[in-house]
């Protein structure tokens, strides 16, 4: 289609398997997968990378990234990743991909302790404030008064507590070397997310220790709004409660 003097300046990364994925229209997982694939390509680590996929919408991440992959039981991705990493040492790079229910509800203990041990892992925490795969239930990160299938009158803080801020919690521990919260609701934020992920992966490759990247992401289906409106909801509702920025970079 292009002219003779055309140069391809943006193409799908090689580490991203060339197939349609199962995510809903406007879902942030597709953007984050693509960023990871780009980083894997740029760093030339595809053949030494293992991704641990969680229970949740992104469980099939291992079908979309052309690297070795491992499924983990709900919440146990950091433990599974610890097992893999302790076998391979720093010759292999383990990316741990988790959602909010996985990382902050059922898997809170594994999250805290892998961070506290300073496992040389890269944690990619996708926070979309809802349980997507099971159909839109309240997550530990659902906002106060947010309506979900299991908080039809809005999340009542008196009953369910305040949403948990993962970066701030991880930031109380000594061991982590990198903690940052990003978002994928705009081109500008996506580019910042890529930068943070790149650093988090680089840290592992260099054997520097535990890196944690929280990504505020869209779940238009779970939120019951249009994809474009979901971008705005991240901006207007999520970011004020979950401030973006770097918490630690050692």
């Amino acid at each position: 289609m292009a002219q003779d003097n055309a140069k391809l300046v943006y193409d799908r990364p090689e580490a991203l398997v060339d197939r349609a994925h199962h995510y809903c229209p406007g879902c942030g997982h597709g953007i984050i997968h693509k960023l990871l694939a780009e980083i894997i390509d740029d760093a030339g680590i595809r053949e030494n990378t293992i991704i641990v996929a969680p229970v949740g919408c992104s469980v099939l991440a291992y079908f979309y990234l052309n690297v070795d992959g491992c499924e983990a039981a709900h919440g146990r991705a950091p433990a599974v990743a610890t097992g893999i990493k302790r076998v391979h040492g720093n010759s292999k790079h383990v990316l741990v991909y988790q959602g909010d229910g996985d990382l902050l509800a059922i898997g809170t203990a594994e999250t805290i302790h892998a961070a506290n041990r300073g496992e040389n892992l890269t944690i990619i925490f996708v926070n979309n404030a809802i349980y997507g795969m099971t159909g839109g239930q309240m997550a530990p990160t659902s906002l106060a008064e947010q309506k979900t299938k299991t908080s039809p009158y809005g999340r009542k803080v008196a009953d369910f507590g305040q949403p948990i801020r993962a970066c701030e919690m991880i930031n109380t521990l000594e061991a982590p070397v990198f903690i940052e919260r990003c978002a994928v609701n705009s081109v500008k934020n996506i580019l910042k997310t890529k930068k943070a992920l790149k650093k988090a992966v680089k840290n592992q490759v260099e054997g520097r220790g535990y890196s944690f990247v929280e990504i505020l992401s869209m779940c238009p289906t779970g939120w019951g709004i249009k994809p474009v409106d979901a971008l705005k909801w991240v901006e207007d509702a999520m970011i004020p409660y979950y401030p973006l920025g770097n918490f630690r970079d050692r």
């Binding site: 146990r76 433990a79 599974v80 097992g83 893999i84 076998v87 594994e110």
Partner: peptide, 16 residues
Amino acid sequence: ESEIASINMVYGASAA
């Protein structure tokens, strides 16, 4: 940190 974590570490190490 728990028996649950340890069996999942076993799972990871075995997968490796």
